[in-house]
Design a protein around this nucleic acid. Structure first.
Lengths: 300, 300
DNA sequence: AAAATAGTGTCTTTTAGACAATATGCG
DNA sequence: CGCATATTGTCTAAAAGACACTATTTT
């Protein structure tokens, strides 16, 4: 903390910002909240929400405030933690900026509205990031990749996957969250060589730009309407095998304080099926033993 | 990253610093590198090494430079990674400072010299921190506690414990590193209520201040001479059961790329014993399956 | 030989996983 | 009923753990 030979006031000041990676699961795909920049530099580019830390707020307060200001998302964020700090000298062309990245999980999000409110169109599937279709402003691709790895890793030894679910949820819904996350993040942990150079990704890259309105934006904000995204949702990677429902049921119920039985039952969906017990998140903070994805981690 | 309503130049600048938590194992106790401040604020207090980030270096470079400047430790640091960033508005009385904390592991350190070179006396056992005997400057107690938790957690699923060993080491030495770390960090992960208010710790708190030289320093830098520390090294907590040597041997050798056989054998110590095979660190980055401490994590 | 440490064998208990069987809703 | 999903049962394979035994050195 001290420097014995220099006076601190000799040093040019830094700008300190926060950026947020907010995950959610919509339509059985893992998504990330992105905004489109309305300022230079990187005007019109996709970027993580974030902004400057104010003089009298701490870092997490700054993160929550910026998120609310830019995306109107507030209490839907059920978990928020620091990811890391990014401070390469040239990461911002204007001056020296250090950004503290946070990552969080949002739940209870409404589905994308289609043409109506553009805000809802900003939950971008991680598959799009992985494919290299989307280049973010600054070093946000790096931040995003780190956040995805952290998420992938952390849901196995914490109960954080429950944060993707509503307040009351069934074990099937929880299992589906695990499947979705491990499915959509598997390529980020298997080989490190992902999303560096864009390779062909027909569905979205063909459809979206064509319907884009002209203007300064090089990637239309409506590209991720519900209808377009369906195309991306279908073809999943084959590297991940879904969890066994019976074994999953046992393994989560055996962990004390992981789930709390509400006594209530869900009503089965339109397609029928037995009603499932509704649970709430318990007080557990660390999952022991952890839950592991199946194929991505073969034992030897 | 952007703020649509304010001009960034409106904001007062921040100072950005780095701080380091450098672990090592000396004399079978887990230790942390501390310095004594020679500047206000907190003049004479124990603190983590660290200092200001210079305009054209990145954060990790700043961390390594400050460590070398303040402690002469350079390539002995075999691992260095970011821990987190601490930026409460009031954490520095002078002005708004955000510090990026790093943690690392040093090996091949010589034993404390006794009265000779005071530098070597700065490897402070974590037991001293846990006991509450030592109050660090700024929010460094918080940083330290976070680093200890991270270390405890991370050696179970990474090969980082090998970083505490020399280039070539025996399986017993590696096992001893695990035992020492889990022994000395167990209280930080079991109950969260540690090291908040000092409680009585006779040996050091009585002995050290009496032999302190007079002056501005309120805690003598020679308090942790070898002779004093022995008293602290003996009484270990009973909450941790050491690993079984046979089972440990099997489990580490079964993980491919964890250890590389050098073909060499160690010479047994003065007390005799069969010579052990010498290994080097392999290329593995993630330990699967992980190695778990025994008592601290009973399965249910 | 005795002590000390390295390394192997073996047995028991626990856990993980595949997959069958049953339960309970819906149209 | 027949379908769909939830939940429980059962069997098997793999892993973890306790602990005895063998191997190789020093004194």
């Amino acid at each position: 903390m001290t420097d014995s030979t220099h006076n601190p006031s000799d040093y040019p000041p830094f700008w300190v910002t926060v950026d947020l990676v907010v995950f959610s699961i919509i339509n059985k795909s893992l998504r990330i909240l992105l905004i489109q920049r309305d300022q230079t530099p990187f005007l019109g580019k996709w970027a993580l929400p974030g902004g400057f830390v104010l003089p009298h707020e701490n870092l997490e307060q700054a993160a929550r405030r910026e998120l609310a200001e830019e995306t109107s998302i507030g209490k839907e964020v059920g978990h928020l933690e620091q990811l890391g700090t990014y401070g390469e000298p040239d990461r911002d062309p204007r001056q020296r900026v250090v950004t503290v990245a946070y990552w969080g999980i949002a739940h209870d999000l409404p589905e994308p509205q289609g043409g109506g409110d553009a805000r809802y169109a900003e939950h971008v599937p991680v598959a799009e990031i992985a494919s290299g279709n989307i280049r973010l402003a600054f070093d946000h691709n790096k931040i995003l990749t780190d956040a995805i790895k952290r998420l992938h890793h952390k849901i196995s030894y914490t109960p954080l996957a429950t944060r993707f679910c509503a307040n009351e949820f069934t074990i099937s819904e929880l299992r589906s969250a695990y499947d979705t996350i491990w499915q959509d993040t598997s390529q980020f942990t298997e080989n490190q060589t992902v999303a560096q150079e864009p390779f062909e990704k027909p569905q979205l890259s063909l459809a979206a730009p064509q319907s884009a309105p002209p203007g300064k934006l090089d990637f239309p904000i409506h590209a991720f309407k519900q209808s377009d995204l369906k195309l991306v949702d279908q073809p999943k990677e084959l590297t991940y095998t879904k969890l066994d429902s019976g074994n999953f049921q046992r393994s989560v119920l055996q962990v004390v304080d992981f789930l709390k039985d509400t006594g209530k039952k869900s009503s089965p969906s339109k397609s029928g099926g037995r009603p499932a017990t509704l649970y709430q998140r318990g007080d557990l903070t660390e999952l022991n033993p952890p839950i592991h994805p199946k194929n991505p981690k073969p034992k030897k």
